[in-house]
Simulated scan of single mutants.
Amino acid sequence: MLSTPKERGFFFPAEWHPHEATWITFPHNDHSWQGEKLSHMYPEYFALIKAISQGEKVKINVNHEELKNFILAELPKYNIDPQQIELFVRETNDAWCRDHGPAFLIKNDNSERLIVDWRYNAWGGKYPPFDADDRIPKAIAKDLGLEFLSPGIIMEGGSVEFNGKGTVLTSRSCLLNPNRNPHLSQDQIENYLKAYYGVDQVLWVSDGIVGDDTDGHIDDTVRFVNENTVITMVEPNVEDDNHGVLAQNLKELKEMKLLDGSPLNIIEIPMPEAVVIDEFRAPGSYANFYICNAAVLVPIFGCPQDAQALDILSQLFTDRPVIGLSAREIIWGQGSFHCLTQQEPKAAL
């Protein structure tokens, strides 16, 4: 009997595959945005919702009825079409749906979908409790009437990046960290990635950026923009703490080959100026963009590098607009647009 998604012909599509919807988990946790910072980030968060809703439904996990009523009252203030919003009241711990949300796979012929329900431990047990977020993939599978499979190991959506053609990029600092799956070797982790994401190749970079409490998620450093092209963040300032690690990642990318033996087409994007808030350096990065149906939504931070990043990405994404949205308040929670979202791909049902 065929048991793994790969054996059954399922795979995780690239983010630019058409979406049925985007899932988010509405922020309410004061540990991520302390005190007034939570309310200060809401305008940026609703701007993100509005931009996504221009081309697809936004499905929102909502912690309780009071929060649901707050969201419904806020939508008209931001001119968001309520018909594009679906609210699901269930217990949640935090906002990072990329990591605790479901991994949607589609069949090779695009006829079916299923959900992979990875375990979630809040980046190595850093931020308990996380049990409610860990239950979200099963709850969404029930909402949608989809089958789900549970591999039984820790995995986060922000730690993996796909080209939709058999390749996944990830980082050693995260997936090989003993705070995730200490009982598994690199080969064993690769086998899980291949079997449950439906890929044939795993490519590894070393590490992530300063301020990233996820131990180096790939979605802050390297992203596919098509099946053979990646953007990678670089730090020109040799005195900056990010310079060395990003230079090492670039060196490793240049040595990689795709399944057909061809090298990666690598586009470099300079990091923004250091985003320092209350003496804390947040993990600001243009790589944390989100590709939705209507646009590519890029976090910007009010610095000169914003325009350069948007220009480079606009030349790479020619099938939809590239839009910069402020993330200066959101980034205090140590994540941005990609971290907050999880795409539900469209299937020819």
Rank of each mutant, 00 (worst) to 15 (best):
F26N: 00
N29E: 14
D319R: 00
A347G: 06
K138I: 11
L175V: 10
K346H: 08
K107D: 04
E36R: 10
G145E: 10
L2W: 08
V116C: 04
A327Q: 12
E7W: 02
L246V: 06
F289G: 06
N29C: 14
G335M: 03
D207H: 11
C174V: 14
D133Y: 03
E112F: 09
A14F: 04
L176R: 02
E66P: 00
H28S: 05
P27V: 08
F162V: 03
D220R: 10
P272Q: 15
E56P: 10
Q315T: 00
P27D: 06
Q343S: 12
Y290P: 11
F224Q: 02
E161Y: 05
G216A: 11
G125Q: 07
L175P: 01
D260E: 09
G261S: 14
I330M: 15
F148Q: 03
R135P: 08
T341E: 02
V116G: 06
F70C: 04
I269Y: 00
D187A: 15
Q84N: 11
P76Y: 14
D240S: 13
A122K: 07
M233T: 00
I323A: 09
E329N: 15
A103V: 15
N265F: 06
N293V: 12
G101N: 01
V322E: 03
I71A: 12
R113N: 07
T318A: 01
V168P: 08
I300Q: 05
N63G: 05
P304Y: 09
V210M: 11
P13G: 04
N242A: 11
I218G: 08
S185N: 06
D109F: 00
Y127G: 05
D200G: 01
K50M: 00
F224V: 03
L264N: 08
S111R: 09
L67H: 13
L246G: 07
E91N: 05
R180N: 09
T170S: 13
L2V: 07
A51Q: 13
G198Y: 07
T229S: 03
N179G: 06
I266W: 03
D117M: 00
S185M: 12
P151G: 07
Q186W: 04
E36S: 13
L259F: 13
D241C: 11
F130K: 11
I60Q: 02
W16P: 05
M256I: 09
A51Y: 04
V298Y: 01
P272V: 11
V298M: 01
K6E: 02
Q334W: 14
F11T: 05
A95E: 13
G244P: 01
K57F: 09
A47K: 10
V160A: 09
G208V: 04
G35H: 14
D30V: 09
N110I: 08
S185Y: 12
M271D: 02
K257W: 13
S32E: 00
A139N: 04
W123C: 01
D109K: 00
L87S: 15
V275D: 14
S111N: 05
N110H: 11
G244I: 01
K107H: 09
V276K: 05
Q83T: 05
S150I: 08
E7P: 02
N237H: 10
L2F: 11
T167S: 10
G124C: 07
M233I: 01
N191I: 14
E91S: 08
V225W: 00
T4A: 02
D319A: 02
Q343W: 10
L175T: 04
E344K: 15
A51M: 10
K194L: 14
G284M: 06
E65I: 15
Q308E: 15
P151S: 08
C97R: 07
D207C: 07
